[in-house]
């Protein structure tokens, strides 16, 4: 692939890369930086790619590593919005009574698959992910958006696997509640 073809191909890829980085890094400047670095790394190796799909796969892999680097850096810093982590934890605890049974039974969503076809659903979905507290969102993003196994996540963030499962549980129940309230229309 010559570098001209690649450069124009990369520009088309940019919005996709940014969207991916933004949802996880939750900071426009950090997302821009990560994407820029990934694009630069790709441009310098243009001759290696056999076609656009191979280039895209490769660039996403670089971007993934940039995002993980940033997560690792952040996980070493003093934790951010810890009050919010606790608040989410408490709101989940409040769903259960003293015997850890439901106070109010969660109810099945009607035809959730149809939501995937609706543009507004994706807006709410992204807003719900963005509303998760930082540490919880980080682990959820590594697991579900990047697709890492939990043992890799534990290693990168230096947390125990039980901690990892607690955070994923918190993220999922938090997202479930957000979607229930904001999309599936329960009180």
């Amino acid at each position: 692939m010559d570098s001209h073809t690649l450069t124009s191909g990369l520009q088309e890829l940019r919005p996709r890369l940014l969207r991916f980085a933004r949802l996880q890094l939750r900071d426009e400047a950090a997302a821009e930086d990560a994407v820029q670095e990934a694009l630069l790394a790709a441009t310098s190796r243009a001759e290696q790619f056999q076609g656009a799909a191979a280039a895209a796969t490769w660039i996403f892999a670089i971007l993934k590593n940039k995002i993980i680097d940033e997560f690792r850096r952040r996980s070493r810093e003093p934790a951010t919005n810890t009050d919010y982590e606790e608040a989410l934890d408490e709101s989940i605890a409040a769903q259960f009574d003293g015997n850890e049974h439901w106070n109010d039974y969660p109810v099945a969503w009607s035809d959730p698959g149809a939501s995937l076809e609706q543009k507004q659903f994706w807006e709410i979905f992204e807003q719900c992910i963005s509303a998760l507290p930082d540490k919880t969102a980080r682990v959820f993003g590594m697991r579900e958006l990047i697709g890492m196994e939990t043992d890799e996540i534990c290693k990168e963030l230096k947390i125990s696997s039980s901690n990892c499962w607690v955070l994923l549980h918190r993220a999922r129940l938090g997202l479930r509640d957000c979607l229930s309230r904001r999309w599936f229309g329960e009180s």
Partner: peptide, 10 residues
């Protein structure tokens, strides 16, 4: 939807 290629054997 965002055409993110599979990143891992996941």
């Amino acid at each position: 939807n965002n055409q993110v290629p599979p990143l891992n054997d996941e």
